[in-house]
Amino acid sequence: MNALAAGHHPGFLSPTGVEITFVLVGLATLGAAVLTVSTRQLVHAALWLVVALGGLAVEYLLLTAEFIAWVQVLIYVGSVVVLLLFGLMLTKAPIGRSPDADSGNRPVALGVAVAAAATLVWVVVDAFRTTWIDLHGVVQGSSRATGVSLFRHWVLPFEALSVLLLAALVGAIVLSRREEK
């Protein structure tokens, strides 16, 4: 299949529209992510996270995984970020620019992150230089296809996960409940 896919595509020099869109959205996503981890306003960080996660949902769509994309929007953008915002408020996070949003570990973190990024990019590019994804076939991530595989092959993990969610629910309630005095 790889050989087949490689045979259809000439190389980097002739990007398709999907590729261009993907790169652009990817850049936006990356920028939003960088802002998320670097902004000094805590609430802004949560908002930039919404942008990054939304951008990722678009990327999923471009990769023909539409169900995942909608789940992404639903859960991440809809609930996780809201939860995070609640968390920020409950912990009385300062509104506006806070000078100490970054800890003293920042230079080290920067070094480690850049090194890791360089290594990963180098390895990934080196490995998948000549690999193409064939997006012109049956849609891989339609709701139907995902549902079929999920409830035909992945039923047991799916149900186990529901138990895990229940446990997490109970745990979160127990943890966050104030003790009665």
Partner: peptide, 16 residues
């Protein structure tokens, strides 16, 4: 689509 695009994006996001 070139596989390197999503892979590189994922790597960079991870490092961020």
């Amino acid at each position: 689509m070139h596989l390197a695009y999503p892979a590189v994006l994922a790597s960079l996001l991870f490092c961020v």
